[in-house]
Design a protein around this nucleic acid. Structure first.
Length: 370
RNA sequence: GUGGACGUAGCUCAAUGGUGGAGCGUCGGGUUGUGGCCCCGGAGGCUGUGGGUUCGAGCCCCAUCGUUCACC
């Protein structure tokens, strides 16, 4: 089945909207949040856990899976879905950001990115063609074009060169693509310069890809700057394309960017913060390792319906965390991923009911009640 | 019983006779296209006890208590 983005409703007072992604492995209601499963696992969760948290699609990483265990191996298992036992949709990051952020040595040339593996130091060259070849071997439902992510802050010439190379690489990705049933998204670059973001969007739109992402944000810039850029970029992308904001973000970021027209998000925040003892609740953050919870009989969040909140006290979870018991990583991750999915569900309901602005206001009011 | 070694932060240990520190733990903060990692900060000490020498003692001397090893 070919990829399709079905548009449903749009809020009349802002850019927030509802949709459905149709992929080779099922459908995804948007706005959606994709838990990050870098190495073929959302850390600490089984596929059943992920599903029970409400997630419909997860993210995998080209860069990481290429280095370990290798895309040929995963391909021999029939792709990442079979390999990891997840039969829902998967989106894979292209590796551009990881090369930029993780690799010990990275040299970007026109042919591709030359880098040293952070695992064993071996030298690799990631070209646009290889990025597609890897993602097709993984059988990703939504593949991302290899992009060039410049550091923040960077000057205009550097950003312009990065976005123009991203355009050329995206063209090569499209030409290298063999499996048409797998969607291919382009990544809009351009740093913090609105006119360069416009240039990037126009160039990539000419390629008529299946969807578009905003890359190069949440790299250290202030939130307000990110919101302004999203507000600038979203209207540039015709609304029959799904719009994906990469690597974002906090619950506040998500509400603000849905408000500005974003359909898809991914972020390590719910899963990584869970492993570091930071939990999300409707009333704000809760640090389970704090001594104040040592004798607390209440669940993490009274209003949460996740498995963890239905069965365990803060005191027990804190004890497990202090003792570094393995179970705690699963229980806390379940809570945070459930929280994010619950947030997305509430957002969709609000848009469907035509009162997203009211929802947004209540979202902030609840946080002030603490 | 005799001889030796050692007593310093909650734990393991540093510190030429000259302002007592570190790691871990603990407490608090951070984490945005993932290394369960990591980073930042705080609290915590009459240096076993009592004397002595010295301008000055965690350090040198004596006694005492405790731990530990070796030998009767």
């Amino acid at each position: 089945m070919a990829f399709e983005f079905e548009r449903l409703e749009k809020d009349s007072l802002c850019a927030a909207r509802l949709g459905i992604l149709h992929t080779a492995h099922g459908t995804v209601k948007t706005p959606c949040f994709m838990p990050v499963g870098t190495l073929g696992t959302v850390k600490a969760l089984s596929p059943d856990d992920i599903r029970e948290c409400g997630a419909e699609i997860i993210l995998g990483n080209t860069y990481h899976l290429f280095l370990r265990p290798g895309h040929e191996l995963i391909g021999s298992f029939g792709g990442l879905h079979n390999f990891m036992g997840w039969n829902g949709p998967i989106l894979t990051d292209s590796g551009g950001f990881q090369v930029f952020s993780l690799a010990q040595m990275c040299k970007i040339e026109e042919s591709g990115a030359l880098f040293r593996s952070h695992v064993d130091g071996t030298l690799h060259s990631l070209t646009p063609e290889l990025a597609i070849s890897i993602q097709e071997a993984l059988g990703s439902d939504i593949m991302m074009c290899l992009d060039v992510c410049a550091a923040y802050p960077s000057g205009e010439p550097v950003i312009k060169a990065a976005l123009e190379r991203t355009t050329r690489w995206s063209k090569r990705c499209k030409e290298a693509r063999k499996r048409e049933e797998l969607a291919l998204f382009g990544i809009i670059q351009g740093g913090m310069y609105p006119h360069l973001r416009s240039q990037s969007a126009y160039e990539l739109l000419e390629l008529e890809l299946n969807g578009y992402a905003i890359g190069g944000l949440s790299v250290g810039e202030p939130s307000e700057m990110m919101y302004e850029l999203v507000e600038h970029i979203a209207p540039l992308v015709p609304r029959h394309y799904p719009l994906y904001l990469m690597g974002v973000g906090t619950p506040e970021d998500i509400v603000e960017c849905v408000y500005r027209g974003v359909d898809m998000f991914d972020c390590v925040m719910p899963s990584r913060n869970a492993r570091n003892g930071l939990l999300f609740t409707q009333r704000g953050k809760l640090v389970i390792k704090n001594a104040r919870y040592a004798d607390d009989h209440a669940p993490i969040d009274q209003e949460c319906g996740c498995y963890t909140c239905r069965h365990f006290s803060r005191a027990y979870l804190r004890h497990l965390f202090q003792a570094r018991e393995l179970l705690v990583y699963r229980l806390l991750t379940i809570h945070n991923v459930f929280y994010y999915q619950s947030l997305m569900s509430q957002i969709r309901t609000a848009i469907s009911d035509g009162n997203f602005l009211t929802f947004r206001q209540e979202f902030y009011n609840k946080r002030r009640e603490i």
